[in-house]
Design a protein around this nucleic acid. Structure first.
Length: 264
DNA sequence: ATGCCAACACAATGTTGA
């Protein structure tokens, strides 16, 4: 089974690139982030025509996550217990969706498509929100793993954290900025402490994001912030991982590229 | 070679992203 995750930065703008990628990459399951649309604006038809079932959540023009699968899709749920709300008016944001995929090929996986809050600035309320969001999600996953140690669980998506110095093109540039701070990194490592493995790092060393500005892509000044985490029972089934770097080229590219994992 | 910010809402700028 081929599983991918991709922050598309607007599914409406990128739908043709998405369907082309699914075909070219022979992708069975795609976790999507930054849909930037509501349910009634989502391009259902194109994905259905391509043979995929889709579960999505999108409240407005921001955030939005989805799972598209051609190998089964069931038991969809949105968010997680104790999902923090954002801001003074306590808005519920569309940043996490979960479903069981792969049952049609005898490999049922509990898959989470995640768009971790950005954080904005180290002293911004969004930063505290980001850390709380990560901590509460980790608690939920840790409890699940404690109850079912053999569960095949995968957390994928845009984590908006560069866990190691080599995951950004310049630590000097990111001094004092979000994504590289120790509390964010600790929040990420807490998932590993809970028993998950980041199955991409040992197989892919490239960045997954390059800013649109300043010729960041041609200069290869990027960040590694999109990951595939897997529970022990799932991690042992991973046989390969790659990114689709070509997807960042040309007019109309997302600023993130797909991260692909091969299972069994 | 990838190429010098983009997408959204809304109607001129403001928000968000990382």
């Amino acid at each position: 089974m081929r599983l991918a995750t991709w922050n598309v930065n607007s599914i409406r703008t990128r739908i043709d690139r998405v369907t082309a990628f699914l075909e070219r990459g022979d992708i069975d399951v795609l976790a999507i982030q930054e849909l930037k649309c509501r349910e009634d604006q989502f391009p259902w038809q194109q994905l259905t025509d391509a043979g995929y079932e889709v579960a999505m959540v999108g409240h407005n023009q921001w955030n939005g996550v989805a799972i598209a699968s051609r190998v089964g899709l069931s038991e969809t749920s949105i968010g997680f217990p104790q999902t923090p709300a954002w801001g003074d008016d306590q808005v519920s944001e569309a940043r996490a969706i979960r479903a069981i995929v792969g049952e049609k090929v005898g490999l049922p996986i509990e898959l989470w498509s995640l768009y971790v809050p950005n954080g904005r600035e180290l002293d911004h309320p969004h930063y505290a929100y980001k850390l709380q969001w990560l901590a509460n999600l980790k608690e939920h996953i840790a409890a699940e793993l404690a109850e079912r140690p053999d569960a095949k669980i995968s957390l994928v998506g845009d984590f908006n954290i560069a866990p190691h110095d080599e995951d950004v093109w310049s630590m000097e540039f990111f001094e004092g900025k979000t994504h590289v701070s120790q509390p964010e990194r600790d929040a990420f490592f807490a998932f590993l402490d809970a028993g998950l493995t980041e199955v991409t790092r040992e197989r892919v060393t490239q960045y997954t994001y390059w800013d649109y500005q300043q010729l960041r892509f041609p200069k290869n000044q990027g960040m590694r912030i999109d990951f595939v985490l897997a529970s022990p029972a799932l991690a042992e089934l991973v046989t390969g991982a790659e990114i689709d770097r070509n997807e960042r080229k040309g007019k109309g590219a997302s600023d993130h590229v797909p991260v692909i994992v091969e299972l069994e």
